[in-house]
Amino acid sequence: MKPTEHIVNLDLPPRERWGFLVDYKTELDALLECYLSDFQGAGFEFDGIEAYKNEIISSDYIEEIEFISSISKFTPNEILIANLYYDLLKFYLGCTAFAFETNGTVLHARNLDWWTDNNLLSSQSKIFDYQRNGNTIFKTVGWVGFIGALSGTKPGKFSITLNAVSSKDSAEIAMPISFLLRDILDNATSFNEAKEILENEPIASDCLLLLSGTSTEELIVIERTPKRFATRLPENGIICVTNDYKLLENGESSESELQSTSCSRYDRASELLGHGLPVNSEGCFSILQDEKVMMGITVQQMVFNNHTGQVELIKTGALTTGNSE
């Protein structure tokens, strides 16, 4: 069985960081085809990808993408479009996340809900350990070919997870949120620095960001549109988020099917946490797997320990066999 966790060596030139992907060519092409087929199904065309790439995307990320293209059957621009999935097609994603302090640490837990055929996104989920000088700088949970971050942790500092939401605010020509999250995980040195960037940096699309640090005072949800933000604080030491704005006026945008379950998932997760905070990751997974919290399209379940940087991941397709990685 191929390993679930891989080191991304940031000391290497960008074209060499993802060299281990040569062992994943089949999985890489299957995943990229999965992403790109959703764009075709949505009738989406991105004629301005070349100009967008040159104006917005860093040279390091472009070089990483060019390497991935060199071992796949897809062009660099197609791989970039696949990496923009959230910003362009976020209505396909759900998600439930929560965080709290317990036993001297902060645990940050999340379900990632994303429709996929053949259990592909679940079975191919991996942990990426980004290192410099042999030391972990941050970790993300994702897939081969995806170089950004939807879920990540910086040991001893903070964790961030992204949930989908929609407003009627216009999209912006700005940094893709998944690339911004990777930048923050790499470069921000504190919870407060990450908070400042997440609140104020122009971004391409709406999102909800659960940011947790190392104490009860460092638990927030940042509600974002491309230009606006509102920051929600915890209640009774607990912060929870699903797929709807609690503070920002969203312009009465129509609900997606995933967003229509948002309030019930939020209420159920909050109820379970209110009965007593879990003391470990097993307790967090129990809440994530509750029948009123977990969706049929949940592909990943994860718990971050913000003090140690430990990441525990369950590929939900394995739940029926009792296996987790």
Rank of each mutant, 00 (worst) to 15 (best):
M302R: 12
S37G: 00
T231I: 14
V141S: 11
V279W: 00
K154M: 06
E55G: 02
I65A: 07
E64F: 05
E5W: 04
A99I: 14
W143Y: 14
F128T: 12
D60H: 11
Q289E: 15
L319K: 11
P155R: 04
T116Y: 00
P278Y: 05
S264R: 08
F179E: 00
G237P: 02
H108R: 07
T308A: 13
K157D: 04
G148P: 06
Y24C: 09
S281H: 09
L233N: 11
I177W: 01
E312T: 14
E217L: 13
S69R: 12
K90Y: 03
G43A: 01
E172F: 12
D129P: 02
R182G: 04
I65P: 03
S70A: 10
T105Y: 01
I137Q: 12
D117S: 12
S281F: 04
T214I: 15
K139D: 06
Q300A: 15
P226Y: 00
F44Y: 13
P226H: 03
D23M: 11
T261V: 01
G283Q: 03
P3A: 13
V22T: 14
I222E: 05
E66H: 11
G142H: 09
L32M: 13
L80A: 07
E172N: 14
E201I: 12
N243R: 05
S72G: 05
A109R: 06
N135M: 10
A318W: 14
A188N: 00
E217N: 13
Y61L: 12
P176G: 00
E223H: 02
R15C: 13
W114C: 07
S215C: 09
W114V: 08
A30M: 14
R224K: 11
L112C: 07
N103H: 08
T308W: 04
T298Q: 02
F67Y: 15
R15P: 09
Y86M: 13
F138T: 12
S286Q: 09
S167G: 01
I62F: 07
F179Q: 09
L198K: 02
F91L: 03
F146L: 12
N133G: 13
K246W: 02
N200M: 07
M302G: 15
S215E: 10
G148V: 06
N83F: 07
R232H: 01
C263H: 09
L211M: 05
I57R: 01
G145D: 09
S264E: 12
W143E: 11
N133C: 05
A30K: 15
G237W: 02
F229E: 11
L162P: 05
R228N: 15
V241C: 03
I68Y: 06
N192C: 02
R132A: 10
L93C: 11
S159M: 11
N83L: 08
L93D: 12
G148A: 06
F20L: 11
V241Q: 00
G152Y: 07
A171F: 11
L248H: 00
E27M: 08
L208K: 00
T320P: 05
Q259N: 04
N200Y: 03
T261S: 01
S178M: 09
E66S: 10
S37L: 02
N323R: 15
V106E: 08
L198A: 05
